[in-house]
Design a protein around this nucleic acid. Sequence first.
DNA 1: ATATCTGCAAACTCTTTGCAGGGTC
DNA 2: GACCCTGCAAAGAGTTTGCAGATAT
Lengths: 162, 162
Amino acid sequence: MILKAQSAESRIEQLCVEHGLKMTGQRRVIARVLSEADDHPDVEELYRRALTLDSRISVATVYRTVRLLEEKGILERRDFGGGRARYEATENGRHHYHLIDVDNGKVIEFEDPEHEALMKKVANRLGFEFVSMRLELFGRKKSAAKPGVKTSSRARQKGNAA
Amino acid sequence: MILKAQSAESRIEQLCVEHGLKMTGQRRVIARVLSEADDHPDVEELYRRALTLDSRISVATVYRTVRLLEEKGILERRDFGGGRARYEATENGRHHYHLIDVDNGKVIEFEDPEHEALMKKVANRLGFEFVSMRLELFGRKKSAAKPGVKTSSRARQKGNAA
DNA sequence: ATATCTGCAAACTCTTTGCAGGGTC
DNA sequence: GACCCTGCAAAGAGTTTGCAGATAT
């Protein structure tokens, strides 16, 4: 048996293996990038980060990989406005949600433990088995009127912060 | 003053006027289509419905109009997977949510009155004023294994039912 | 050895936009 | 009458895909 002298298996890589996916060099890199991300990168950003680890990766592969991982339930796709899909690792049991600042598109995470239980109950009531959920709250920063920040209409969200 | 002998102002049209929008024939038609919709049409579907009322409308105008109405807070954009944006009229105060069947993309609406209050509290706790929210629940129909319905992996959602 | 994966570039789909003409307030 | 809106068609952005070669198991 040949031991690969590589850095430890990332969490996502492990999940890939458990799901019986063929682990190519590219997938390993993408898995690592995903494991290390604590924000909500879009494909282009994942690609950029992956390139810093290995230059032999194409965007097409990143697209194919996130799609595959989403189908396997390893990743979840998010839409925070702005046209691109964002991704984050599925966190079984310990869900978190997103509050999006409508004025600047910034995303704040928050938890609400009772919530998932509540949603499971709702799904059940409707005759469904809970698979996953998505909760996005849109809000506007209270008071603290900072100069230079327009509070008028909703900011068009094209390429906002993670 | 010239009285226009047209059918009554639709609910959305009324909102447009209140928001000071110039009411063109096209906008009136689109407003009416939106007012009468009780599902979540995408732009193409809105366009199709609008055409049955007036053939002098282009898709570009539908796009421009939904975008405008969304910015005004009259419409809300939804993303149920499948690449296209879906729209529905904003319902102030009485929110409803969506349960999406992961196997066939069908959307079921449900209410949960406590919920909005809960979310307003969360927004407040984080220092934000509640603007709107989005809640999507993904589930799989329990038992009742219908023949012909694959329960294996998640269905790719391209062009599903409203 | 074989089925799967990747890069590349072309193709697709959804959405936005410049421009000239038309309509609303 | 000023300004905004619309249609058309072209352009943009994000994502998917066919193919030939490379790779994992």
